[in-house]
Amino acid sequence: MQKNRLFSLIDKAVFDYHLIERNDRILVGASGGKDSTALIEYLANRSRRPDCGFSFTALNIQTEFGGAIPESIANLFREWNVDFRVISIDVQGRLKPGKKMNCYWCSTQRRTELNSYAIQNGYNKIALGHHLDDVLETAIMNSLHKGELSTMIPSLRYEKYPVTIIRPLYYAMEKLIIEHAKERGYYGYTCTCTFQDNSTRKDARAKLSALTENNPVLKQHLFDALMNVNVSYLPKKQS
């Protein structure tokens, strides 16, 4: 596989957290956006290594609100010999009486379908395109809205289901993914859903930008702080 900075960072995350192991069957959530497409490109390249030992499928969950994956992205998947599948779901039809449609509901339903498809078809891992900026934004959201220091983790095994969530882009900043996608010619596709406004996530993104001034060094320091917690100098909750 041709080495580049993004793929090297993904390799490191995969190695550090044992994200891909022999005989894994991985289901990748494919939105058509830069993050999931970069992840699929990486897996397609990695699967051609002599010591591959795993298989993967890219699955797009299509709803009545978002458009289909652009043909240009689908053509790339074919070029990369990716097993690409599409299923359609009626998101609004699942709303309970009196509830309004929103971005969170749609996202939850698509995640539910990914989990169900993985379990029903024998996949043991689900790969998602969350990157370093997503991790920091989630830490900010959880701190401010939940009052707890927590965030996404690179590997999460469900207690109730035989599936593990993996995030191979964990070490990659969004800026690097954008640069990579532009270089590869697939940057630019965005969700066209009219319910895509996630104000809490956007607010956290703005706060992260203000806090770090979009300086990658400061973002990296903030990310490193999540893994370098000195509990001796943090207050303890009194019983």
Score class of each variant (00 low, 15 high):
14 V>L: 07
14 V>F: 10
15 F>Q: 07
16 D>H: 11
18 H>F: 02
19 L>N: 09
19 L>W: 03
19 L>T: 06
22 R>K: 10
22 R>P: 00
22 R>G: 02
26 I>H: 07
26 I>R: 04
30 A>P: 07
30 A>Y: 09
31 S>Q: 03
31 S>G: 06
32 G>K: 03
33 G>E: 11
34 K>V: 12
34 K>R: 10
36 S>T: 15
37 T>S: 11
37 T>E: 01
37 T>A: 04
38 A>M: 14
38 A>K: 09
39 L>D: 03
39 L>F: 11
39 L>S: 06
40 I>R: 02
43 L>E: 04
44 A>N: 08
44 A>Q: 06
45 N>E: 14
46 R>L: 15
46 R>S: 10
49 R>M: 09
50 P>A: 15
50 P>G: 12
51 D>F: 14
51 D>W: 15
55 S>P: 05
58 A>P: 12
58 A>W: 08
59 L>C: 07
63 T>M: 01
64 E>L: 03
65 F>P: 00
65 F>Q: 03
65 F>S: 03
67 G>E: 06
67 G>D: 02
67 G>L: 14
67 G>R: 09
69 I>P: 00
69 I>L: 04
71 E>T: 01
74 A>C: 09
74 A>H: 02
75 N>Q: 11
75 N>L: 08
76 L>H: 10
77 F>Q: 05
78 R>V: 00
78 R>M: 08
78 R>A: 15
81 N>L: 03
82 V>G: 10
84 F>C: 05
84 F>N: 05
84 F>R: 03
85 R>E: 05
85 R>A: 01
87 I>K: 04
88 S>I: 11
90 D>R: 13
93 G>S: 13
96 K>P: 00
96 K>I: 01
97 P>F: 15
98 G>A: 13
98 G>L: 08
99 K>N: 11
100 K>C: 04
100 K>G: 04
101 M>W: 02
102 N>T: 01
103 C>R: 01
103 C>V: 00
104 Y>H: 08
106 C>A: 01
106 C>I: 07
106 C>P: 08
107 S>E: 03
107 S>A: 14
108 T>D: 12
109 Q>H: 11
110 R>W: 11
110 R>V: 01
115 N>W: 10
116 S>G: 06
116 S>R: 15
116 S>M: 09
117 Y>A: 09
119 I>D: 13
120 Q>Y: 01
120 Q>L: 10
121 N>M: 08
122 G>L: 02
123 Y>I: 00
124 N>F: 01
124 N>H: 02
126 I>Y: 13
127 A>W: 13
128 L>E: 15
128 L>N: 12
132 L>E: 04
132 L>Y: 01
133 D>G: 13
133 D>F: 06
133 D>W: 08
133 D>S: 08
134 D>T: 05
135 V>M: 05
135 V>P: 12
136 L>H: 03
136 L>S: 08
137 E>I: 12
137 E>V: 12
140 I>M: 05
141 M>N: 00
142 N>K: 10
142 N>S: 07
142 N>E: 07
143 S>E: 04
143 S>Q: 05
144 L>K: 12
145 H>Q: 13
146 K>H: 13
148 E>W: 08
